[in-house]
């Protein structure tokens, strides 16, 4: 998994590529923890994401909870198969997916 961050004022974009699974999600979690303190607008670009496991979902849930307190969070360019995971797990109910 690779993460590319770009920030503009208080908005922050995480462009992620590869698999977000048990072994890679701690890295994403750490990156988020370091970056989103002053962020009011967090965006995940999922164009390059191939797979997300329950561990990855946990990180997204955690980020969503944080952002609920300090601003907004959204996901974009979500692939169909990833979208299916979100649907199955009910994450479509709590995530803002464009």
């Amino acid at each position: 998994m690779n993460i590319q961050k770009s920030s503009h004022n208080n908005s922050l974009t995480f462009s992620i590529s590869g698999r977000i699974d048990t072994s890679t999600s701690p890295k994403l979690e750490q990156e988020l923890k370091n970056s989103i303190n002053d962020c009011t607008e967090l965006t995940f670009d999922f164009a390059q994401v191939e797979y997300i496991s329950s561990a990855g979902l946990r990180v997204l849930l955690s980020a969503q909870k944080t952002m609920n307190k300090q601003g907004s969070m959204k996901l974009k360019n979500v692939h169909e198969n990833i979208m299916e995971i979100f649907e199955v797990t009910g994450f479509t109910d709590i995530l803002n997916i464009e």
């Binding site: 849930l61 797990t89 994450f91 109910d93 709590i94």
Partner: peptide, 9 residues
Amino acid sequence: KHGFVVGGM
């Protein structure tokens, strides 16, 4: 019909 995961929210 799916709901959200248990323990998430």
